[in-house]
Computed example of a mutant assay.
Amino acid sequence: MKKLILFFLLLLFFCWESFAQDFEADGQIKILPYEPMQVRDIEGLTKDIKLFHKRIEQMLPFLNKRKKIIDNEYFQFVPALENFNFPVRDRYLIDKKFYLRVSGGQSALKLDGVRFITRKSLVTKLRPIDDQIGELKNESVSNSDPATIVLTVKKKTDAGTKEEVYSLSNIRNPDQRVKFVRSYRDNLAEVIQAIDKYVEGTIRADAKDVDTMLDGLDSGGSFQEYNSNR
């Protein structure tokens, strides 16, 4: 019996030691260091982010010329889509938006910030409230440092609203930190793709307008003098 008690005491001691190693002296959760491969992943993602920020900034004059930048912001959205969560068959509405915060004049437009907002809302009747909003943002894109990327998660339930804020400084797992930066990079790529589609659509619409006008001029009859006395 004594051996069994001693065994449990030793197990409790080692568990406590392991648990204590997860925290700093001030109570903060210890952040696990990167492995060499993860360091290279972060470096590669940072280069992509810097390139994508620059590419988006190059598109700003076009958007401004088309009067799409309003109150120093440009945004696009994905219409709300209904999603089923099998096998429970709960129905959710999911929508997504992105915002670009801009500064400067026509000849010197700058990209100051980027926000991606995703909302998932339970719409099944007679079910508890379940509303989740995720905001992935970077309010200082000038140096393209992943450390400035922040994820805010708000969860609204019958018990109230809970909010958590995550960044590279408080995400413990290095794999998850890499995933965090990669998600921001991938969303920037979607922004570029979305604006490219708008540019292509605008070019096609302009070309159609020109063709329509030229076809009308080419197919018209002979000009005649207008007699105002009739």
Rank of each mutant, 00 (worst) to 15 (best):
M1G: 01
K3W: 11
L4T: 15
L6T: 14
L6R: 05
L6K: 00
F8C: 11
F8V: 14
L11E: 00
L12P: 01
L12W: 11
L12Y: 12
F13D: 03
F13M: 09
F14L: 13
C15N: 11
W16V: 13
E17I: 11
E17C: 06
Q21C: 13
F23W: 08
D26L: 00
D26P: 00
G27L: 01
Y34H: 04
P36M: 01
V39F: 04
G44R: 08
L45Y: 02
L45H: 03
T46N: 03
K47H: 07
K50R: 12
H53L: 05
M59Q: 10
L60C: 00
K67V: 12
K67Y: 13
K68A: 10
I69M: 12
I70G: 01
N72P: 00
F75I: 02
F77K: 10
F77N: 10
V78M: 09
A80P: 15
L81A: 15
L81E: 15
F84L: 12
F84C: 09
P87N: 03
V88D: 15
R89M: 14
R89E: 10
D90V: 04
R91M: 11
Y92H: 02
Y92W: 01
K96Y: 14
K97Y: 13
K97C: 08
K97V: 13
F98T: 02
R101T: 14
V102M: 00
V102Y: 02
S103L: 01
G104V: 11
G104P: 03
S107W: 06
S107G: 09
A108G: 13
V114P: 06
F116A: 13
T118Y: 04
K120D: 10
S121P: 02
V123G: 05
L126V: 12
P128Q: 14
I129M: 02
K137D: 11
K137C: 14
V141C: 07
S142L: 14
N143V: 08
N143P: 03
N143I: 15
S144K: 00
D145C: 07
A147G: 07
A147Y: 09
I149T: 07
L151K: 02
K156Y: 08
D158K: 00
G160E: 03
T161D: 01
E164Y: 02
E164W: 05
Y166T: 05
N170W: 06
I171H: 05
N173R: 06
N173D: 15
N173G: 04
D175K: 07
K179L: 13
V181S: 00
R182F: 04
S183E: 13
Y184D: 09
N187F: 06
L188I: 12
V191M: 02
I192K: 02
D196E: 09
D196Y: 11
K197V: 15
V199T: 07
E200F: 08
G201W: 07
I203S: 09
R204A: 15
A205V: 06
A207S: 14
A207Q: 10
K208G: 05
V210W: 05
V210T: 11
M213V: 08
M213F: 11
L214A: 09
D215Q: 13
L217R: 05
D218L: 12
G220P: 03
G221N: 14
F223V: 12
E225S: 09
E225V: 07
E225F: 09
S228I: 14
N229I: 12
N229S: 13
N229A: 11
R230D: 12
